[in-house]
Write a protein that binds this DNA or RNA. Structure first.
Lengths: 98, 98
DNA sequence: ATAATAATTTGAAAGTTTTAAAACTATTTA
DNA sequence: TAAATAGTTTTAAAACTTTCAAATTATTAT
């Protein structure tokens, strides 16, 4: 792989992260997860943000695919957690600015 | 204006910035402008990036509308300059990571 | 004035994203 | 095993984005 290809690949990763953060609803979900680390199931997001559950699923998947959130099943529930590693690498300072 | 409305407004600004950066071509344009501060006309971008000129105009406008770039006419040419203030406020560290 | 050069706008086609309802799958509880 | 709960997938419509060619506007040079 050439240096140019590595740069393009990194840009695709960046673009994916930025696209994931390019909707107000998803920024709000990130803020919610940042401030509610103990109440972070899909259902909690549905309830507190007044969104349709299929829509929460859809948006969470986009955040997951951009490596911004990890999702861990816990019984019936799934818990979403921010991926500090990705934020640190690509958006240092962003979470604190929320 | 309530605090909630201010937060939403800020989120809209953030979302606009992230949307502007959510395309590889626009990230490449930002990188180009970052590294070629003296050769920053639309034509220079067209030439060096091999894009259609109407397309460069379109993408530059999106960056401009997100306050990421300022555009100054200089005779027949227009020069694009990165808006350090916006990058510093919303994406500290980003330009250096390019 | 006319031609040449630089950039923008328009319009149409192709592609992508968002939304919400309904159907579905997985897990727990009775 | 059946019902309840949590979350996902599918589908289709509406809204939005990207591309490129052609027409247009603005500026400079002859």
């Amino acid at each position: 792989m050439t240096i140019e290809q590595l740069i393009v690949k990194d840009d695709e990763k960046r673009a994916k992260i930025f696209k994931a953060l390019s909707e107000v609803k998803r920024i709000e979900m990130i803020r919610y997860l940042h401030h509610n680390r103990d109440n972070n199931t899909c259902g909690a997001i549905v309830k507190s943000m007044g969104m349709d559950k299929s829509n929460v699923s859809y948006h969470l998947k986009i955040l997951y695919e951009a490596d911004l959130v990890s999702i861990i099943r816990n019984g019936q529930n799934k818990n979403g957690q921010l991926r500090e590693d990705t934020f640190t690498e690509f958006l240092p300072g962003f979470l604190d600015s929320l």
